[in-house]
Design a binder for these strands. Structure first.
Lengths: 214, 214
DNA sequence: CCGTGTGAATAAATTCACAGCA
DNA sequence: TGCTGTGAATTTATTCACACGG
């Protein structure tokens, strides 16, 4: 089998796919042609059983007694992660974080091109960051249309996040990655993913505190 | 009951605690004294049932027929998140992302103070970023000791992440937040949390692609 | 034989429904 | 009467163990 149909892939598995894919890229560059579940699992910090279960969600792509073929597996994972087509994203909020992400190599090397940087502050509009001219919020709709933007990254303060979300949704964007520590209200069909850096630190703090008082 | 003992709190619940806490802060500032599970759940983008289940993990802190007392709940959540004591963190990697995080207000306002910024490149060492002088990697151990560093944030390239982790672990840090898209090998007792920005985009890509082909 | 593929078992998280207290 | 607290049920994810094919 090799038709993925449209099964529900668990988010946890998709997260691991991303790591598998990265490790496979390194192996391909090193000239390795096959890899076993134990090797790939070790590279991804998982168990062989979990890895095999993950990959079996996409069909049978390994060879028993041998392992997985690197060049076969890569496109399967890319397809599962929706990377068959390139994605163009706009960053809303040209503060420190927004500027850093505009030049973040990890985006471009994985198929996500930053094609626009938007900010509300007149003082920032027009300046150049990472080769991109900062656009005013008013020009967002035009930008989305002209550059065929498919994703938005919100790096605005919490109080401005809902407004920013409303604007990008109105412009036709249906996938949003938000760094604001608030829940966003969006219409059905719009996918919001939240990354809260302070929350991650708080999780570490909790674990550290729990470990200290057993 | 109000003794949290040391129950295993699910990570998913802890993530929501962070949002509850933020919303409670706004309500406290607005002078509200009580809040119902429905109100707080709406602000956090979850359901009342989930919220009540979450809070019940910490004991019974609400009043039936009334709701939760804002000023009572805040310290309970802070304690659960390990925020009773301040945390001092060092950022390893003074690239764009590291510099952005050094000045990120979301850290300081939630009790995480950045006390050091470290980089391996001699050209960067000694320069000032967000009021902090960049330290050489060799000075990390001293920095951790002098400033009582309790957490490290890794914003180095993937190929340098394992080395960076080894260095901070050797310096005595036991909580690490890594932005590198690789699994880190650390000794038992060290807690690593990984935030992979490209992975989050890939999850969005997957959902968008899956929604397009039903 | 070796290593994958997968059903079954286990564990975990979410949701439900209603008892119980102010 | 209103809203919390929580056991039970459901759904979801992980782990195990072993059959199966190259």
């Amino acid at each position: 089998m090799s038709i993925p149909a449209s099964p529900r892939l668990p988010d946890a598995a998709l997260r691991r796919f991303s790591l598998y894919l990265r490790s496979l890229g390194e192996r391909a560059a090193a000239g390795e042609s096959t890899v076993s579940s134990a090797e790939l699992a070790a590279a991804a910090g998982t168990t062989p059983a979990t890895l095999r279960k993950d990959l079996s969600l996409l069909g049978s792509h390994g060879r028993r007694g041998v392992g997985y073929d690197v060049s076969t597996l890569v496109p399967v994972l890319e397809s599962a992660l929706g990377l068959s087509t390139p994605w163009r994203l706009v960053i809303v909020g040209a503060g420190h974080l927004g500027r850093a992400l505009a030049g973040y190599p990890g985006f471009a090397t994985r198929g996500f091109g930053v094609v626009g940087l938007v900010d509300a502050a007149p003082a920032v509009v027009g300046t150049k960051v990472a080769g991109l001219k900062v656009t005013a919020v008013e020009g967002l709709g035009e930008l989305v249309r002209d550059k065929a933007v498919t994703m938005a990254v919100l790096t605005v303060p919490a109080r401005a996040a809902q407004d920013a979300a409303d604007v990008v949704v109105a412009a036709g964007v249906r996938s949003i990655l938000s760094f604001a520590p608030v829940a966003l209200r969006v219409p059905h069909g719009v996918d919001v993913r939240r990354v809260d850096l302070a929350t991650e630190l708080q999780l570490l703090a909790h674990h550290a505190a729990a470990a200290a008082t057993p």
